[in-house]
Write a protein that binds this DNA or RNA. Sequence first.
DNA 1: GACTGTGAAGCCATTCACAGCT
DNA 2: AGCTGTGAATGGCTTCACAGTC
Lengths: 220, 220
Amino acid sequence: MKVMRVPEATVSRLSIYSRFLERLDKLGVITVSSGEIAKGVGVSPAQVRKDLAYFGEFGTRGVGYNVKDLSHYILKILGLTQQWPVVLVGAGNLGTALCAYRGFKDRGFNIVGVFDNDLLKIGKRIQELEVLPIEKVPQVVAENNVRLGIIAVPQSATQEVADVLVKSGVEALLTFGPAVIHVPDNVIVRNVDLSIKLEILTFNLGFRELQPSYWLEPKV
Amino acid sequence: MKVMRVPEATVSRLSIYSRFLERLDKLGVITVSSGEIAKGVGVSPAQVRKDLAYFGEFGTRGVGYNVKDLSHYILKILGLTQQWPVVLVGAGNLGTALCAYRGFKDRGFNIVGVFDNDLLKIGKRIQELEVLPIEKVPQVVAENNVRLGIIAVPQSATQEVADVLVKSGVEALLTFGPAVIHVPDNVIVRNVDLSIKLEILTFNLGFRELQPSYWLEPKV
DNA sequence: GACTGTGAAGCCATTCACAGCT
DNA sequence: AGCTGTGAATGGCTTCACAGTC
């Protein structure tokens, strides 16, 4: 079997290319070159070609890529040719916002359960969903074959919620905030930490005054 | 002048170390080694030492680092020894959640203005702040010496909001969602795209079934 | 002529391994 | 003995440059 490692940065960019291609498709564009994609999303043409080359040959030399086809291939690679049921734990401000977030639905992510352990929140309706007690997680996960979980609870509760989700069979977690969590090797975890992002900005604002060479390039 | 480039990944990790150190300090811990920090936040000890080495020598050989001192140095490096006034554009679900987000206040980020162009939202109160019309951005930015802006509006409005903020003098932007924006070179932009994060998860779930060697390591 | 696909080169970040200090 | 600080080695991602195809 051919062994290959795909950089995570490549996967992130595929997600970006994918949405650019969907926009082109809606505009009726038939063909696109790596240079046009590159310009549209702010990377180099070689980067676009290299990213795609990890997965096959999708273009035609001298011509470019068929927008509809490439768009479909990338969705396939990302696993987005299906709908993904998702459970969300945490019905606070952030959880509520995530529930309503259009970007998830657009990409095939359906939140099928919202949970909390706060009696004041349980029973509330958010976007047609009733907030359920944490104890119902295993049942909802099982009934809906849920593999993805989002954790939007205070830092101190993140680990125990992760444990519940993992025990229920969820295989991949998205967490928010600074909590560092421990899960079995076969569970995938990614984190979003908004303070880190702001601190990257303040770092740059501070150091560019002192020493221009500290300036950094964005990572994604 | 000594020329140095600091990897952005290093800055992200400093932010993580910083919060770990604050926790240790609250627990009354006086001294910590690179190995203990490494274990606490899930990186290698060499990585911790290398990250710190970009900025100076903060430790004592044979002993380790003084928790309070190191904590302070890192805050200094990140520019967090001051409070940062921030403006937020977009008073929808996400904007509301960001306004209430404790993690910002904890790190010295104060949202001093919330703006929207939706008449239904203008005048509403969110966390002691009245939602103001976009037209008031320049005034609030000027009065509060605001250098940081957060944009939590629909993709289609992101660029024009960025233009308003830049024209008002904001120097660094945090945007949400898939919009690719263009700003002058001296403005720093970072982006948070939640769909990308979920798509990294589905990519991994899909490909680990087909080909285990596709498995990826997290980037941050 | 235009554009893709790709090996090679270049560059950047992480890890190693050890000298240096307490 | 224990731990930091750092040059050297490694590994991985990006860019280059060109052969291959339409």
